[in-house]
C-alpha cells in the first residue's frame, strides 16, 4: 500500500470521526445534512458487502468496520438522540436524496465491471458517493452558515479526495493490471463537486463573509 492511499484513508477516517466526535461532544448537529450522512451510510453498507466474502487484509477489514460503525453512529445520533436531533435543521435539509439512489442504481446496472450482485452494488456505491455531498451543499446554501461545519471537516474530505487521486496515478504507473475506470471517473466527479464547494468555502473565508453559493 502506497503512502497516498494510506493518507487518503486516514483523512477520510478522520473526517468521519471529527464529525462524530463533534456531534457527541457538543450534542448538536446544526449545519449537518442528515440526507448526506444517510447516503454515506448507504455507500459504506453497499460497498463493503464483501466483508462477508473476500478477505484482503486485516487493515481493510478493520477500516471497513470503522467506516460503517462511525457513519451509522452519526445517522443514529441525528435521528434518535434526544438532544442532537433537536438541533437538526430539518426544514432546511430538503434535498430529495431518494431521487439520487434510483439513477445511481440504474447506472450501476448498466455500467459495472462485471454483472454480478456484488459488482453492481460496488459500482452503485461509487456512483452514490460521488453525489452524496449534494444535500450538504444545498443545506449550506440555504443556511449560509459555515460556522457549524468546521473547516477541519471540509479540509479532511478534500485531502481524502486528493490523496486518492494521487494513489490512482501512482498505482497506474507502478502496477501492471491496475485499471479501474468506474472508480476513477466517479472519483473525479466527486472531487469536482467538492472542488466547487472548496472554492466558495475559501472565497467566503478569505473575504470574511458568510458562505454564499450560487443558486
Amino acid at each position: 500500500m502506497n503512502m497516498f492511499r494510506f493518507l487518503g484513508d486516514m483523512t477520510h477516517l478522520f473526517s468521519v470521526l471529527v464529525l462524530l466526535l463533534k456531534i457527541h461532544t457538543i450534542k448538536s448537529c446544526a449545519g449537518i445534512s442528515l440526507k448526506t450522512q444517510e447516503l454515506y451510510a448507504i455507500v459504506f453498507a453497499t460497498r463493503y458487502l464483501d466483508l462477508f466474502t473476500d478477505y484482503i487484509s486485516l487493515y481493510n477489514t478493520v477500516m471497513k468496520l470503522v467506516y460503517l460503525g462511525s457513519s451509522l453512529s452519526i445517522v443514529w445520533y441525528m435521528r434518535r438522540h434526544k438532544l442532537v436531533r433537536r438541533s437538526y435543521d430539518k426544514d432546511q435539509d430538503t434535498f430529495r436524496h431518494h431521487f439520487l439512489i434510483l439513477p445511481c442504481l440504474i447506472l450501476a446496472l448498466l455500467i459495472n465491471e462485471k454483472f454480478t450482485f456484488m459488482e453492481v452494488m460496488w459500482a452503485f456505491s461509487l456512483y452514490l458517493e460521488a453525489v452524496a455531498i449534494l444535500p450538504q451543499l444545498v443545506l449550506l446554501q440555504r443556511t449560509r452558515n459555515i460556522d457549524n461545519l468546521t473547516g477541519q471537516y471540509v479540509f479532511l474530505l478534500g485531502a481524502y479526495r486528493s490523496f486518492y487521486i494521487l494513489n490512482w496515478i501512482y498505482r497506474y504507473f507502478t502496477e501492471v493490471h491496475y485499471v479501474h475506470w468506474i472508480t476513477w471517473i466517479s472519483g473525479l466527479v466527486q472531487t469536482l463537486l467538492y472542488g466547487d464547494f472548496f472554492y466558495y468555502y475559501f472565497h467566503s473565508w478569505k473575504n470574511n463573509e458568510k458562505l454564499q453559493l450560487p443558486a
Partner: peptide
C-alpha cells in the same frame, strides 16, 4: 479469488 479483480481499496 482472482486478486487482480478484487477491490482492495476502500
Amino acid at each position: 479469488p482472482n486478486v487482480e479483480n478484487m477491490h482492495d481499496e476502500l
